[in-house]
Amino acid sequence: MSSNTDMKRLTRLSAILLQLQTKRIINSTDLAEKFAVSVRTIYRDIRVLEQIGIPITSMEGRGYSLTEGYKIPPVMFTQQEANALITAGELIRLNKDSSLTSAYKEAVDKVKAVLNYSAKDKLELLSKRVAVSPASLKEPTSSSLSLVQNALTSFTVLRITYQAEGKNESTERFIEPFAFYYSLQQHWTLIAFCRWRNDFRMFRLDRIKTVYLTDLKFLPHQLSLQDYLKEKEKNFISPDKPLS
Rank of each mutant, 00 (worst) to 15 (best):
N4G: 04
L10Q: 03
T11V: 08
I16N: 00
I16Q: 00
L17Y: 03
Q19T: 05
R24W: 05
I26N: 07
T29R: 13
T29N: 09
T29I: 13
E33T: 08
E33A: 12
K34P: 04
K34V: 10
V37N: 04
V37G: 10
V39R: 09
T41L: 05
I42V: 13
Y43M: 04
R44T: 12
D45A: 04
I46F: 06
R47I: 08
V48G: 09
V48H: 15
E50V: 03
Q51K: 12
I56G: 09
T57Q: 09
S58W: 01
S58K: 09
M59K: 14
E60V: 08
G61V: 04
S65A: 11
S65F: 01
T67W: 01
E68C: 07
I72Y: 14
P73H: 00
P73L: 12
M76Q: 15
T78R: 02
Q80G: 00
A82I: 05
I86M: 09
A88L: 15
G89L: 08
E90R: 05
R93S: 07
L94Q: 14
N95D: 15
K96P: 10
D97H: 12
S102F: 11
A103C: 04
K105C: 03
E106G: 00
A107R: 09
K112H: 14
A113E: 15
L115S: 11
L115G: 09
N116M: 10
A119H: 05
K122F: 02
S127W: 07
S127Q: 12
K128N: 15
K128L: 09
K128F: 04
K128P: 03
V130A: 15
V130D: 14
V132D: 10
S133K: 12
P134T: 10
P134N: 05
L137E: 06
T141W: 00
S146Q: 14
L147K: 12
V148R: 02
A151W: 01
L152K: 14
S154Y: 02
L158G: 01
L158I: 07
R159G: 03
I160G: 01
N168Y: 07
E169N: 11
E176T: 02
P177T: 07
Y181K: 00
H187Q: 13
T189M: 05
T189I: 11
C194V: 05
M202E: 05
D206Y: 01
V211R: 05
L213M: 10
F218L: 09
L219D: 14
Q222D: 05
S224W: 00
L225G: 00
D227P: 01
Y228R: 01
E233H: 03
K234M: 11
L243K: 01
